[in-house]
Computed example of a mutant assay.
Amino acid sequence: MTAPFLLEARALVRRDARTATTLLDAADFALAAGERVLITGPSGSGKSVFMRALALLDPIDSGHVLWHGRDIDRHAIPRYRRSVAYVRQRPALVDGTVEDNLRYPYSLQAYRDARFDRDRAEQLSRAAGRGQDFLAKRAGDLSGGEAQVASLIRVLQLAPEVLLLDEPTASLDPESTRAIETLVADWFDADRSARASLWVSHDPAQVERIGGRRMTMHAGRLTAYKEVIE
Rank of each mutant, 00 (worst) to 15 (best):
A150G: 03
R126D: 12
G131Y: 02
Y86R: 00
W67K: 01
L165G: 00
P160G: 02
V87D: 08
R130C: 15
R112F: 10
S125I: 02
A85P: 04
T169P: 10
R90L: 11
R81K: 09
S171K: 10
A159S: 14
R192V: 08
R126S: 11
H75C: 04
Y86I: 00
S107R: 15
L156E: 04
A190I: 01
R178N: 10
H68S: 09
R126L: 07
Y104S: 09
R79E: 12
T97Y: 08
G129T: 03
L152E: 03
R120E: 12
A110Q: 08
Q148P: 09
A159P: 06
S125R: 00
D173R: 09
S193D: 15
L152Y: 09
A128H: 06
P105V: 02
P160Y: 05
D117N: 14
F188I: 02
G145I: 05
R82S: 09
D61E: 11
Y104T: 03
R118Y: 05
L164W: 06
H68K: 11
P174R: 11
G96D: 09
L164S: 00
R81P: 02
R79H: 14
F134W: 04
R120H: 11
R82Q: 12
A147I: 03
G129N: 05
E181C: 06
A185R: 14
A114L: 14
H64T: 11
S171V: 08
L165S: 04
R88Y: 03
L124H: 06
E99Y: 04
G144L: 08
L135D: 01
Q132H: 13
S62A: 15
G96M: 11
E181H: 13
A76N: 07
R90S: 14
D73S: 09
R120L: 15
D113E: 15
A159G: 05
L135G: 02
S107E: 14
S151T: 00
A127R: 13
L163W: 10
A110N: 05
A185T: 14
E161I: 04
E175P: 05
I72Q: 07
G145M: 06
V87E: 04
V98A: 00
A139Q: 07
G145H: 08
S171D: 15
D117E: 11
R81E: 03
R79W: 11
Y104G: 01
D71K: 12
Y111W: 12
V87C: 12
D141M: 12
A159Q: 14
L183T: 06
A110H: 00
R178K: 13
E181F: 09
Y104Q: 10
L102K: 06
A121C: 10
G145L: 08
L156I: 08
T177N: 08
T182N: 11
I72L: 08
D95F: 13
L93I: 09
E146I: 00
E167C: 10
D73P: 08
G69E: 08
I77V: 13
V149N: 00
R103I: 07
L93G: 06
G131A: 13
T97V: 04
S125F: 05
A150V: 01
L108A: 07
A159I: 00
L158Y: 07
A185G: 03
A127H: 09
R154N: 01
D100M: 02
A147S: 14
E99P: 01
L66V: 10
D191V: 04
D71S: 13
L183P: 05
D119Q: 13
P174S: 07
Y86G: 01
